[in-house]
Amino acid sequence: MRHRAPHRPGCLPDSGRTQRPMIQLRKVTKRYPSGQEALSGVSLRLDAGAMAFLTGHSGAGKSTLLRLIALLERPTRGRLVVNGHELETLPRRRVPHFRRQIGLVFQDHHLLADRSVFDNVALPLAIQAYRQPEIARRVRAALDKVGLLHKERAAPDTLSSGEQQRVGIARAVVHKPAILLADEPTGNLDPELSREIMDLFVQFNQVGTTVLVASHDLDLISRLGKPLVRLHEGRLQRETAGSAA
């Protein structure tokens, strides 16, 4: 599934634009049973083909925001529309199909230790019943993209953390999702590796994928010339530092 929207970086605190919104939040609040309010009335819009960074201190609500978009959690209040899907009314049985439109990258890569790199990356295709030759073609293309084609038979545990993260990214993009969400993807990596990872996200955005990356590494992300969305204690701060577009 590929979306060919023009990749002009249209983003940010919601304003009435004409481009197709890919991610749209309206006054979204998330309160956990503990009483802690992770997000308070957040409104946000990310157009198809855009890329933005989500930043703020840990505990500011970055992860919660990404989890709401991927429907790993449901908001307490407010409205979310993602790739044309009204999340509030999306029935439980449609959730798996909805998630296939999203690629997720985590700080701790979530790889399965008992399967090879190839099989880990193949998982999103296997659950969609792709045929084996097609799976092999796409998995190798994704691994090639992150520079790990020669490691396809390796076990994830034998890779460095930077390589593991790249395998996680390959798995997130192998089924060509419309949206790529990443939660602190460089959290465990040194600056050099972090820059390589961020470059990958920029490259995926250049071929049309809508990308939203949560990161607190301001030094790194401010150099990439993409809009920043800053969260502070669950609220959005209207700031677009580094937006060169």
Binding site: L104, H110, L112, P124
Partner: peptide, 16 residues
Amino acid sequence: RREIEVAKLVGATDAF
């Protein structure tokens, strides 16, 4: 459990 979580994460249905 982890395997199931990851599979659900990438959009596996309960049936799968």
